[in-house]
Design a protein around this nucleic acid. Structure first.
Length: 580
DNA sequence: GCCGTTTTCGGCCCGACTGTTTTCAGTCG
């Protein structure tokens, strides 16, 4: 079982216990453990073998014993017994909006409902309205929720959410009653996928602000709304929430709506220690007096903490780091001065080398590596060794034209074949300035096989960077089943860089693995993998992913001074301990 | 069930909104 599968067992346990009516703090403990496993970069099997399970936050004696049983026998008696008591199919009912554990238990006990189809039938038959605490409106709401559940395809990739959010922000910027409006929620924290959009606004006239929000042309349904909070559904099924407070309370509001929930819970605990009750409105003292915060900085300062960047707010150690003055010096977009992975018309790109070079200079890029595909990848009309020699002439010509305004490098994105061999021989690789080795096919191979291919590439001294190491496409294609502990150990040994591919449909490595990589001293390379001049240098989502992984400029070769980067590329043997 | 620069036992965040309620429970974030 992998980390996510073990985490799912505990999430299921928490759901079943909640339907059963167990103590809420026990349930929260299971959820916390599941969350910890989801964000654990190391393979849980390895942590288990090392006897370090209890070092994982939220895992104590009882849960550690359960993981032990799960991993040694593949089953968990406690879970099996629980499923005998509470049907596991009830868990899917929790996904229906406005249906929580209490209602699931009610439907189950009084009507024998155990799945969504049963709930839908009962609602259509008018049976739900007869239950205590239920009425016609609740029944209609549940039918509506089931429909939404069927329609919604879960979380959407950050790239799409970003576009939707910007359009809505533009609209709200034009509302006179709103003096300020900002992104919040998981989009502001820059998670790779987004469930709902969350926005916050400052206004002294919340009723007017909310009315304008509901009048946004894309709104197809108003889910609910007061003067502090309103939620709507846009026409593609995306749900958006807007919170409003007066400007002098904007800081507490923005902090609250940005989350994460786990981060906020920790923050409120710390606030209590300082004698404050923290909410979206204010920090309240015991005597009833209020401290108002117009900015987030004031919120953190009142708790005695430095400002914590949104990307870190996941309760993954940022509170402790802030308390001890050890927050990372996170990488920013302007730090990225080199693009080491892009494509031109020599393979599947849309623009010539000259056009890409010009676009790079416009964007302030100082080093550009042309890395077209090797010919092994049939669909992209990749380059043969002969093509590479021809391409080199063109690169030299363009370099001559641009002079010292831009350093052009010749590289290649070399295919790692399904048998683990590289498309080009070592002799060919040796003439290239930059070698990115990537897997594009055979992503569904068994773990050992696909890992072995990547290890081969990492151990080849000519390979500088492993491109999009896991090969997943967010929301479309699952990543390959790579043994990341083994890959990272090998990369740490050879000093080979792992890529954070900044294409918003990839974001691979993800935040969790990026953080693990820097802990192990592995250099990272952050690249847009641009196929056009429009996307060249658009690294913001990749930078955000890196920031979520606690990455600093010193960890990313693209952020190093030009000469340091060129030295690193030319000298593979001197790559150990590159985090200067 | 987890956790501890006040604690190894007794805590474990806070409020808005809705619908069903004459004062509150459930859900959500």
């Amino acid at each position: 079982m992998n980390n996510l599968q073990v985490a799912d067992v505990f999430t299921n346990i928490a759901d079943l216990l909640e339907i059963k009516g167990e103590n809420i703090y026990k349930i929260l403990a299971y959820r916390k453990a599941a969350e910890s496993l989801n964000s654990l970069a190391q393979d849980v099997n390895e942590v288990w073998r090392d006897g370090k399970l209890k070092d994982v936050p939220g895992i104590g004696k009882a849960i550690s014993d359960k993981i032990d049983e799960l991993l040694s026998t593949g089953k968990l008696g406690f879970f099996e017994k629980l499923k005998q008591e509470v049907p596991i199919s009830l868990v899917e009912l929790l996904h229906v909006p406005d249906v929580g554990p209490k209602k699931v238990a009610l439907f189950w006990h009084s009507l024998g409902i155990t799945d969504v189809a049963g709930l839908e039938a009962a609602a259509k038959a008018g049976q739900l309205r007869t239950l205590p605490g239920m009425g016609e409106k609740s029944e209609a709401k549940i039918l509506n929720g089931i429909e939404a559940l069927h329609k919604r395809s879960g979380r959407i990739p950050i790239g799409r959410a970003w576009v939707e959010a910007q359009a809505l922000l533009d609209y709200l910027h034009g509302v006179p009653a709103i003096s300020r409006v900002e992104l919040a929620g998981s989009l502001r924290r820059m998670r790779s996928t987004i469930g709902d959009l969350d926005l916050v606004a400052a206004s002294t006239d919340p009723a007017v602000a909310m009315a304008a929000f509901k009048n946004y042309p894309q709104v197809i349904q108003v889910m609910g709304g007061g003067e502090a909070k309103t939620s709507v559904e846009l026409y593609r099924g995306l749900r958006v929430q807007l919170w409003v407070q007066p400007p002098e309370r904007f800081g507490t509001l923005w902090q609250y709506a940005t989350g994460s929930k786990e981060h906020n819970v920790r923050l409120r605990e710390l606030a209590l220690d300082k004698g404050y009750s923290l909410s979206e409105q204010h920090m309240a003292r015991a005597d009833g007096s209020e401290l108002l915060c117009a900015s987030e900085e004031e919120v953190y300062a009142a708790i005695g903490l430095p400002y914590i960047p949104p990307e870190l707010r996941e309760d993954r150690g940022e509170i402790e780091a802030a308390r001890s003055g050890r927050l990372p010096n996170l990488i920013t977009l302007p730090d990225i001065q080199a693009e080491l992975h892009c494509h031109t018309t020599w393979s599947d790109g849309s623009y010539s080398i000259r056009e890409m070079a010009e676009a790079a200079m416009v964007r302030g890029i100082k080093v550009l590596a042309i890395t077209d595909h090797s010919h092994g990848l049939g669909i992209t009309h990749g380059l043969s060794p002969d093509d590479l020699r021809q391409q080199k002439l063109e690169i030299d010509q363009v370099q001559k034209e641009v002079g010292d305004r831009l350093v052009l490098l010749q590289g290649a994105e070399v295919e790692i074949h399904t048998d683990g061999s590289l498309e080009f021989s070592d002799e060919v690789l040796a003439i290239l300035d930059v070698v990115i080795a990537s897997v594009h096919t055979g992503l569904r191979q068994p773990r050992e096989q696909v890992t072995g291919r990547l290890l081969n590439a990492v151990r080849n001294p000519h390979v500088d960077i492993i491109g999009h190491p896991l090969g997943g496409l967010i929301g479309e294609r699952e990543p390959a089943d790579v043994d990341m502990d083994a890959l990272m150990a090998a990369a740490a040994e050879s000093g080979t860089a792992l890529e954070i591919n900044a294409d918003p449909s990839r974001l691979d490595l993800n935040d969790i693995y990026a953080r693990r990589a820097i802990e192990l001293g592995i250099p990272l390379s952050l690249n847009r993998d641009a196929h056009s001049i429009e996307t060249l240098g658009q690294d913001e989502f990749g930078v955000a992913t890196a920031r979520r992984g606690w990455v600093e400029p010193r960890h990313v070769i693209n952020a190093w001074p030009v000469q340091a980067l060129l030295d690193w590329l030319r000298n593979p043997s001197g790559r150990l301990n590159t985090h200067k």
